[in-house]
């Protein structure tokens, strides 16, 4: 509760200080957001591809997202942006299969962030393992907007973890990886690995977890929010 109040204050304060049109709107709407159940809370599921795991050293090379409205993932909102980071993708190419030549077609990071935050207006963020991605996005927002953007997020990894803790279920090494969890919930295995499919995958996983946590009624999301 206190966290939520603090988050709202922060959004409002920054929104007043920064008059950058799109951003101020994002912050104001984010502060005013009512969070209830999946059916009536708009979400944006996001995944990033990076050149490495260190937000200080490495850079974002791709951002993928989709929207969840009324408990349904809307393919019409699917978006995949390649980011021209000006840094070589190096060995990370082996993971995300993006080559320097691909990334060269990408948009500038600032433009990518502007598009992303526009798409995130009035929505709760959703990630799998949020701290990593949010770390990168905040880092990027400092050089873009001059401050670390506040985030109010749901994290499927954290939700599954608390589900298992509530029910005294063991957590083995690797159990909480996106693909492992998806198989656990009878969700399809996607062969292509990119930021967009991972964002969609995360959204599907959230729908599944919510049904398992609260089979009889609709799950209240508020207790699972994390603030950055």
């Amino acid at each position: 509760m206190l966290d939520h109040w603090r988050y709202q204050k922060r959004c409002q304060t920054i929104a007043q200080r920064f008059r950058q049109a799109g951003l101020a709107d994002y912050l104001t709407e984010s502060a005013a957001l009512e969070v209830d159940t999946i059916a009536n809370t708009p979400l944006i599921a996001v995944d990033l591809e990076m050149t490495g795991l260190d937000a200080r050293e490495n850079q974002i090379v791709a951002i993928g997202w989709t929207h969840v409205d009324g408990g349904r993932i809307r393919f019409a909102a699917n978006q995949h942006l390649l980011i021209n980071a000006g840094q070589t993708v190096g060995y990370s190419a082996a993971i995300h299969e993006l080559l320097d030549s691909d990334v060269a077609h990408g948009v500038a990071l600032e433009e990518g962030l502007a598009t992303l935050f526009e798409a995130a207006r009035g929505r709760v963020w959703l990630f799998h393992h949020a701290s990593l991605d949010v770390g990168f996005l905040q880092r990027a927002s400092i050089s873009w907007a001059g401050f670390a953007m506040p985030f109010m997020v749901l994290d499927t990894l954290q939700m599954e973890l608390s589900l298992r803790q509530q029910r005294d279920l063991p957590v083995q090494h690797d159990d909480l990886r996106l693909n492992k969890l998806r198989a656990h919930y009878n969700l399809p295995a996607y062969t292509a690995h990119n930021a967009l499919t991972d964002a969609s995958s995360t959204a599907e996983l959230l729908l599944a977890i919510a049904e398992k946590m609260e089979p009889a009624t609709a799950l209240k999301l508020k207790p699972y929010l994390t603030y950055f």
Binding site: F75, H80, E97, L196, T197
Partner: peptide, 14 residues
């Protein structure tokens, strides 16, 4: 690989 796109390629494949 794609550049920037609205995409549902995992959907079209299926």
């Amino acid at each position: 690989m794609p550049t920037n796109y609205h995409d549902a390629s995992h959907a079209t494949e299926f």
